[in-house]
């Protein structure tokens, strides 16, 4: 049992919930329900949906894969170096995504620091490709992974590592078999957050990967373009985005916030 919720808190909380829900409900009110089947059958819509799902899932996995070592490193460090590194890793979360996209261009674009060398060496061009979309999405999603996992790693009793060492497990085995499984719920939470961020990503994607229908035009980009030509199509696609996101957040709710 808990103390009763103060009435003020309850009223404010309900008002805020209503405030957040209103725009979403208003959007639903405008959705052209009768036209939805024909809209969603259009090629550029199905392309965008498939592309969005593929790229966001790939980006979430890449962000996890790359973010976990960084989280482990940061959880072991203190002092100025750690603070600066952490701030840098958090930047893509704070920066306008367009700035992130521009920064990616300067690095991996065809004239970029690494991009031109990459193109000369292997012929691979990241911008205007699925790889570019995934890279842009992973870039903005990574801070969520680092933040979430570092937090729970810091909360973990370091003696578990000693226990593993006392049983003869080397550092890597300890990490894979003991430490990461023990923060499993936050690894899952980090993956969901990263995926959600990647699915809704717009600015970095359009800046870095462009807006090529069927190739790099993700659902948010398609919505943006359709807002000027066919608003009803934009609404239908927004509905799809809302339903997919809501569905995943609801399925993952228990893993995300472990039940008390």
């Amino acid at each position: 049992m808990r103390t009763r919720l103060p009435r003020r808190v309850r009223i404010v909380a309900l008002l805020v919930i209503a405030l957040v829900a209103t725009p979403l409900i208003s959007l639903l009110l405008r959705v052209p329900w009768a036209r939805i089947p024909s809209i969603l059958r259009q090629e550029f819509v199905t392309d965008a949906l498939v592309l969005s799902l593929t790229s966001s899932v790939l980006a979430a996995f890449i962000a996890l894969f790359l973010g976990i070592p960084v989280a482990i490193l940061l959880s072991r460090l203190d002092g100025l170096f750690a603070s600066v590194t952490r701030a840098v890793m958090m930047l893509p979360m704070v920066l306008p995504p367009v700035v992130g996209g521009a920064a990616l261009l300067f690095a991996f674009g065809r004239r970029g620091t690494l991009g031109s060398a990459l193109e000369d060496a292997s012929g691979v061009v990241l911008p205007y490709s699925l790889g570019g979309v995934v890279l842009a999405n992973a870039f903005v999603a990574m801070p969520f992974v680092v933040l979430t996992i570092e937090g729970s790693l810091r909360g973990l009793d370091s003696r578990f590592e000693l226990a593993a060492a006392s049983l003869g497990a080397n550092e890597f085995r300890t990490m894979i078999k003991v430490v990461l499984p023990m923060v499993r719920s936050s690894v899952i939470a980090a993956g969901v957050l990263a995926w959600a961020r990647a699915l809704g990503e717009f600015g970095a994607t359009i800046t870095f990967a462009g807006n090529i229908p069927g190739k790099t035009q993700t659902l948010p980009l398609a919505v943006f373009v359709a807002m000027e030509t066919d608003q009803e199509a934009a609404l239908a696609m927004s509905l799809v985005l809302i339903l997919v996101s809501l569905g995943v957040l609801l399925t993952m709710r228990d893993r995300w916030w472990p039940a008390r």
């Binding site: 003696r159 006392s166 049983l167 080397n170």
Partner: peptide
């Protein structure tokens, strides 16, 4: 010698079993 190669065992006050 790194801890995991010392051939020493340790039992902790709270057991510290791996919960997963």
């Amino acid at each position: 010698v790194p801890p995991y190669r010392r051939n020493l065992g340790m039992v902790f006050d709270d057991g510290l079993l791996f919960p997963h």
